[in-house]
Design a protein around this nucleic acid. Sequence first.
DNA 1: TCCTGACACGCAAGCGTTTGCGCAACGCTT
DNA 2: AAGCGTTGCGCAAACGCTTGCGTGTCAGGA
Lengths: 345, 345
Amino acid sequence: MPQPRSSRPTQRDIAELAGVSITTVSHVVNGTRAVAESTKAAVLRAIEATGYTGDAIARSLVTGGTRSIGMAISLVANPYFATLMQAIEREASEHGYTVLLADTHDAADTERETVRALRSRRVDGLLITPAPGDGPVIGELVSLDVPTVLIDRLSTRTDVDQVGSENIQATSALTAHLATLGHRRIGMISGVPGLSTSEERVLGYRLGLGRSGLTWSSELVACGNSSREGGALALSTLLALPEPPTALVVGNDSMMVGVLHEARRRGLRIGRDLPVVVYDDVEWADLVDPPLTTMAQPIEEIGRQAVRLLLARINDPARKAETVRLPPTLRHRESCGCPPVHSHQ
Amino acid sequence: MPQPRSSRPTQRDIAELAGVSITTVSHVVNGTRAVAESTKAAVLRAIEATGYTGDAIARSLVTGGTRSIGMAISLVANPYFATLMQAIEREASEHGYTVLLADTHDAADTERETVRALRSRRVDGLLITPAPGDGPVIGELVSLDVPTVLIDRLSTRTDVDQVGSENIQATSALTAHLATLGHRRIGMISGVPGLSTSEERVLGYRLGLGRSGLTWSSELVACGNSSREGGALALSTLLALPEPPTALVVGNDSMMVGVLHEARRRGLRIGRDLPVVVYDDVEWADLVDPPLTTMAQPIEEIGRQAVRLLLARINDPARKAETVRLPPTLRHRESCGCPPVHSHQ
DNA sequence: TCCTGACACGCAAGCGTTTGCGCAACGCTT
DNA sequence: AAGCGTTGCGCAAACGCTTGCGTGTCAGGA
């Protein structure tokens, strides 16, 4: 007689079937105490027969933990999001954790809600890319002792774990590269204001200028708002200058797409007419003409480290906060104006 | 005196603070029955004061539902994954659902585990991109009455909800387009065998050939395994033919990347020397030279529909299964060998 | 004055687990 | 024959919530 399969088997069902108490069932499932071989076998048989899976919800209620982590991330804003996510999921699941996904839309109030929702689901910890001007939310998380790690957009506080890539030195290197090529007027297209990444990259740009003996001029940095459209607009702005830049540092890949479009529309040849380097590598960087010189973030590593940090904190809440800065790597191709290098494929 | 904030406030805390029973707290939180204005106000004040969020876990235990759906998806295999995911998350959260993410790695046994894990977390429903040769898993889900919708890779069964894009007619159109350009030997690079999408696209290719009065020849389709490397290899295979194809249909975007690389390596000019069309559009399709003629899947719409179907089934398990096929749209650019069209930007 | 309905609320029984105690049975040692 | 450490297991109390019943109060109709 087929069970009224409408509802899943519970420990009690297994217990009855195996002729033991639910206590015993629990213990064989979790291996929490010695159980006679014969009994264990009977229980396992019953489990097999019914397809019993256990109930994570009920277990969580009593243990307190959920073995799940929440990802409050800005899906829109993160171009390399898929890769990041994949790395995070992999690392988490390898440690037996499930990932709850929620989009912050990069807005402070959605972020609030999102975090609330995740917390009410009792996630053991939170991974989050702080929205611009978020401040209070992460402050609250910290003071509530919610295990949290910030990704990508790092904050200046030192009481929270965070991992992101190094922006200043990297952008400086990008800028300096253009300078060594002889450029004196190097422009920059910067990202959404208020984001630490945007600001650090501008800082890096200025640093690179300084190191190359060039002076900074505010008119040479145009904000592209981290978007395609913004990038295109910013390029126009820069080009409209009485004395336009002769080379460009672009703050992220989305803006680069805009730059590429706008350049084509104007018949401007990247690399020849206008050397460009960009922070962020993309899959197609070497497929366009000319191939793009980029700064590639170690995305996978960022994801992995974020999860590691989070799990470490979950297991030891007293642990002191850590900030991890991973260095991106320069992918030297041709959009900077350098001649083709030999591809090592 | 600060609470021992170690553990979150519960309904009981609120009840005490507001001087009511937990029953009342529950009812004001859920709006499940009339509560005097003054009482309600007191409760709300207490909630505000403590930062009470409710406990989804405990609630789930009693209600049975979790207001969450599981996404068992192949992160690696889905190139447009980020977009899909975003659409799904948005639609789900708009309906008050949270998304649990799990990677199937596109392997049948990981898929099994993944689904088990998700189910033990009591997700209300499952979104899944079936791994090649999965069969049994979705069979089990169906017979267990677990609300499920298949995405992208559709099965032939009619007792399960599914949504994906139309492959046959679309690929046929792509192929026919090359034929109208005068090509008689049109090759195809196909995806991982055993995937419905791969097979349908090959079918569409043959259909397009037939409709154009061309006959099919097995040597003209090379399997590129849906990967970059595979695509490059497949191109080599095809080119090594005694009588190589004069134009190419590529089965997905990853393989196209491989094709582009391999073509460049050989100094082959896509479009001029070898016209190519590809199923799947990519962000950079119009940034390469020549811009790619592609078939763009309505990814957002797929995600939305998938969630809608799933929620519909959750709310009415007796509902009869539905299969949704969304038509992709041709993005006619230049890699097919056609002259530049005027961009409408 | 008594009855009735509407309104406001509380009691307590679960939901499916985990886990601290406790008890029985068994073999050994003295 | 009594005492004792082991081994193997069950009882029952949580965990934080929802919800079917009840109970008490108060206003209005008879």
